[in-house]
Amino acid sequence: MLIKKRSGIEIPSSEITPEHIYASRRQFMKGATFVAAGSLLAACAPKGFNAAPQGAAPVSEDIDLTPGTVSTTTDELGDPINSYEDITTYNNYYEFSTDKDGPAKLSKNFPTSPWQVEVGGLVRNPGVYDIEDLRTKFDQEERIYRLRCVEAWSMVIPWMGFPLSKLLNEVEPTADAKFVRFETLYDPEVMPGQDSRWYDWPYVEGLRLDEAMNDLTLMATGLYGKDLLPQSGAPIRLVVPWKYGFKSIKSIVKIDLVEEMPTSLWMSAAPSEYGFYANVNPEVPHPRWSQASERRIGELGRRETLKFNGYEEQVAYLYDGMSLQANF
C-alpha cells in the first residue's frame, strides 16, 4: 500500500529552519561576486543547468519530473528535486564501479529478487524478511531528502520507504544493543567492483541505536514512486539524510544489533578521513573536499553546506555534549 505522507517533515519551512541558518544562507547568497559569476555563467551553461544557486529556487522547466510520481517538486527548503535521470545516472557505488556513470551501466543484470534481509544480533525476535514482506508489512512513505556526498556534491531525492524504527521495534533490541550494523551483499560475480583489493568487502556501515531510531532514518525501497534501480541500492537501502552519503548503505542483506561500535568499510580504509558519525558539518573539514560548501547537481557554482544537512532541528539532540570535531 502506498501512502503519500511526509511524516516528521511536513512542517512549514519557516519553522523547520532555524532563523540563523536562513539568515546565513541569505548572506552567503548575497556575496555579490558569487551571484554575478553564476549569472554570467548561466549564459554558457549546458542544457539542464540552473543559474546561480538560490535559497528558494523556482522549479526549473528543465527538470524532468515524471508526472504523478512525486507529490511535490521541492524539498521543505524550497529547493527543486533532482531529475530522475540525474539521480539514476550519477552514483557512487564502488561495488560496481568507481566512475560516477559506471554503476548504472554495470548493474543492469543485478538480481534484486528474490532478496532476503536477515535481522539479528541482540534482539528478542530475530528474523529473515523477504523484500516483498518488507514492502507490504510497513507502509511505504514518500520522503524528500537532501543527499550530501562527502565529495561535496548534493542532490534532492524523493525516496519511498519506511522508518527503520518500525523494523527495529518489531525485532525488539535487547538492553545490551547499542549499535546497529548493516551489511551489503557480497557477491563479486554480480558486483565486479568487489574484486578491488583497495577495500575490505563487504560494505559495512553502522548507526548508534538512537540514531537508527530517529524518525528521519529511512529504509528506502524506491524513488520517484518506482522501485529502486540497482545503481541506487536496490532492493533496499538505508537513507540517513543528516550524514554524508556513504553512511546510507545500499543493497542490504544483513542488519545486526550489536554492543560495540561497528567499523565501517570507510573507517577501515582511511581512518583519519572517515569517522563513525560522518555527520554533515561545514565546521569539520576533510583533508580533500571543502565541507563548507557543496555543488548541488543541476546548478552551477556552489552553495553553503548546512549543519546536519539542514536537519539540525530533528537530530542535533542526539549529539548533545559530544564534540563533533572529535567524533567526526
Binding site: G31, R288, A292
Partner: peptide, 21 residues
C-alpha cells in the same frame, strides 16, 4: 576559481590553503 567557486575568495582561500591537494 570561476565556474566552481564563483570567485568567492573566502572559499577559494580555504580550498587552496587548507586542502593539501
Amino acid at each position: 576559481v570561476y565556474l566552481d567557486y564563483g570567485l568567492s575568495w573566502p572559499l577559494i582561500r580555504e580550498a587552496i590553503f587548507e586542502k593539501r591537494y
